[in-house]
Nucleic acid binder design. Structure first.
Lengths: 218, 218
DNA sequence: GTCAATGTTTTTGTATACAAGATGGGCATG
DNA sequence: CATGCCCATCTTGTATACAAAAACATTGAC
């Protein structure tokens, strides 16, 4: 159940920013957006506020809001934080997970595996997200879970675009299994470290990807 | 320079929530607040939205916003996350801090020390905050720094109220020195673990405090 | 010709007016 | 007497009107 018009609009604008419909630094005109969504400026302003607090746009006082696409350095930073948070989740989960949840984790991991075998990137992406979310959940700390979900959502488009890198799928899969094994063994430290590496490598891979693209753009 | 009226109001309402002027679960009436601050409902609504996204109030669709004081369990969760984030900061700082920044860290720690000697809780609280903020800074990850500052601010009132526990000041001081020593030695893992314990103990101490108060309230 | 100052215009921030949903009480009915 | 339904009222959500500040362009001076 959506709360109100402003929230639906916030999600839609967010989507437009994610899929690149708005260029980096572009000003988002309240009046234009109001016309586009057939509402008044009020809900638009509320939506933009939300996006500003999420960090998707920069809001300059009395100047307007400007879309803010994170650069490679900023992305590295965000992935680094994600890696730390997920490592914590894995470590906690190793101590706190229930037998049932562990079985579920196996099930999700299995579905990831078949997706890899089928070369079904889309399914893998979804099940992979679910896998990570289950770890957040089983850290048994709702606040931590929320923070993780927030960042996961924020980094979503960037994780997606680098799944196409050769060999990443099977590598990622192997890392998942190592995490589960460590959790099953109750080895929190190991689970945390494997998880940290698993997430951090994404940031690094992304960094390389951008580094490779940059010379071409110049 | 504050951005606009709504932001000033947001800070003021936040302050009112922190210092307990609004009870847990109390509804914040937009019209009343508008009258209180001598503005229209518009900036009030913007302020309340900000608070909702910070988690200080719960916003129920078409029902209103209700102040949300975190309970003991929620606080434990938040302190746990804070401990994880600060541990990460310490670990990164051990690898990334400059000689100059390390000297500054020593200076702040020195001021903490004299505050302890003087039994000057207020000064200690301030310098202590600065100490932690310097670690966030020297993790050399602005995104991580921002997240830490956010949570630090959120937990501020709760850290404050438990500084009065006997012996906490000198214990805290010793932990600071252990962190600095580990960082100076470049031992990231050690710095992280000491830091984690240093922050986590606050959450636990708080938990005990509440547990002790609870029977009295019943 | 260029730069600066001022007036115009556009755009953000705030106030008010209006609409729609939620709360609470009264009345009717079982 | 209890319970459920309906209506009045209040509160939130949205639209519009107004104010103030910034961007822009035009014009004048050097």
């Amino acid at each position: 159940m959506e709360r109100k018009r402003a929230d639906i609009i916030a999600d839609q604008i967010e989507e437009l920013i994610f899929d690149g419909s708005f260029a980096d630094g572009e000003r988002l005109d309240e009046t234009q957006l109001a016309a586009r969504f057939s509402v008044s400026r009020t809900p638009i302003r509320e939506a933009l506020q939300r996006l500003a607090l999420s960090g998707l746009v920069d809001q300059l006082p009395r100047r307007g809001v400007f879309v803010h696409h994170p650069g490679p350095v900023e992305l590295m930073n965000m992935f680094e934080v994600m890696a730390e948070l997920e490592a914590s989740c894995a470590r906690f989960a190793a101590q706190r997970i229930t037998e049932d949840a562990l079985a579920e984790l196996d099930a999700v991991n299995g579905r990831c595996s078949t997706a890899v075998a089928d070369r079904d990137i889309e399914t893998y992406f979804l099940e992979n997200e679910l896998f990570h979310q289950m770890l957040y959940r089983n850290a048994a700390n709702p606040f931590l879970e929320q923070e993780c979900l927030r960042l996961q959502r924020r980094l979503r488009p960037f994780r997606r675009m680098q799944l196409r890198l050769r060999g990443r799928l099977s590598q990622s899969m192997a890392e998942h299994e190592a995490v589960v094994a460590a959790i099953r063994a109750g080895d929190g430290v190991e689970a945390g470290e494997v998880m940290r590496a698993h997430v951090a490598v994404q940031g690094e891979k992304f960094h390389h990807l951008v580094a490779r693209l940059k010379p071409a753009a110049e």
